[in-house]
């Protein structure tokens, strides 16, 4: 039995529409028109304990709606969802004890209080036994290197510091599942690395199930074994990064550095760009194997260096949306 079961989950929102202009505003006073938005139009997936799943899609695809239903905040319009045997929106209070949540754009810390007081408040709210709190908080504070920040009021923290504190705050009650909604949004490169490292450690060493939404494809590549792509309220793809790559145009990339600029031409490859002696090439591995292509090139051209690259994941996703006619 999977830890998280989601079956044909649907969520419709009623959005009040207003015609533009003064007359439109006035008529809206008397007669409201509503438009129905299908944020989720039948979503299915299962997640086992200890998985680290990337949940990606463009803005408005339904990512956050899914996370909010899974964490018991929103009630779906139809469908089934069970997490560790509980229905999130019905057994909300019991369910939220098993989960930790971080919404990257907002903080769960108390703005005017020092960080440590927010942690202690969460200890009281979750009724974490003192001994358990001592060990788990000390450990988390060490991993995230928060000790110098503990007495600073949250409003004085930088975004990167705040996110590290938020991550620790979401884990004090030792949840078995962690939902991260855009945890790296707006962070600098160093903070992003710290967050990724932390999430990885958490997943490997504590076997915490992590569901991560992000627009940062480096997050996905660095962290996720499994990627669920959502668009237009439906699941477009569910599998490993390799299987996602294989499913789409199986093009590979080569970055070729030559000893001197020459007019490069080869029947098996497509030239994407050429800047002096550096060339970006694309080829289809089902037409010619990588090994024989490299051999051909090395024999015919003055090669200084060759890099084989996978196409950036953004391009894969864009292809997937195009194929499913989703407006990104």
């Amino acid at each position: 039995m999977s830890q998280i079961v989601v079956e044909s989950l649907e969520k419709r929102f009623q959005v009040a529409e207003r015609s533009p202009g003064f007359v439109g505003a006035l008529s809206g006073v008397f007669r409201r028109r509503y438009r129905t938005v299908d944020a989720l139009a039948g979503v299915d997936f299962r997640i086992d304990a200890g998985e680290l799943v990337g949940y990606i899609g463009p803005n408005g695809a339904g990512k956050s709606t899914t996370i909010k239903i899974l964490s018991g905040i929103l009630t779906p319009s139809a469908g089934r969802c069970e997490i560790e045997g509980l229905v999130p929106w019905q057994d909300r209070k019991a369910h939220v004890r098993n989960i930790g949540v971080v919404f990257g754009q907002r903080t769960q810390l108390w703005w005017d209080l020092p960080v440590i007081e927010s942690f202690e408040l969460l200890r009281d709210i979750y009724r974490i036994p003192p001994s358990q709190y001592r060990t788990s908080s000390r450990e988390l504070i060490d991993i995230m290197d928060l000790a110098p920040l503990l007495d600073t009021p949250v409003r004085q923290l930088s975004l990167g510091q705040r996110m590290r504190c938020d991550l620790v705050a979401s884990l004090l009650h030792q949840p078995s599942i962690l939902f991260l909604d855009e945890p790296t949004i707006g962070l600098d490169a160093i903070s992003k690395l710290a967050v990724r490292e932390f999430v990885k450690t958490l997943n490997r060493e504590r076997r915490v199930t992590v569901i991560l939404t992000t627009h940062d494809m480096d997050d996905i590549e660095a962290l996720c074994d499994r990627i669920v792509v959502i668009g237009g309220g439906r699941i477009l793809s569910d599998g490993t990064l390799a299987s996602l790559r294989a499913k789409l145009r199986s093009e590979r990339r080569i970055k070729l550095e030559l000893l001197e600029p020459v007019a490069f031409d080869s029947p098996d490859v497509r030239v994407i760009s050429a800047e002096g002696a550096t060339l970006h090439l694309a080829f289809d591995p089902s037409v010619i194997t990588t090994a024989s292509l490299i051999k051909n090139i090395a024999e015919s051209w003055p090669v200084k260096d060759i890099f084989i690259e996978n196409p950036p994941i953004e391009e894969l996703i864009a292809q997937l949306y195009a194929a499913n006619r989703v407006n990104a």
């Binding site: 909010k68 964490s71 018991g72 905040i73 909300r92 209070k93 019991a94 939220v96 004890r97 989960i99 949540v101 919404f103 907002r106 769960q108 703005w111 709210i125 979750y126 009724r127």
Partner: peptide
């Protein structure tokens, strides 16, 4: 003021992920 802000900015989400009424 905090509750007002929570409601306006949608941070009610965090209130609902606590095991409290």
């Amino acid at each position: 003021k905090e509750i007002e802000q929570l409601i306006r900015e949608g941070a009610v989400s965090y209130e609902l992920v606590r095991p409290l009424d």
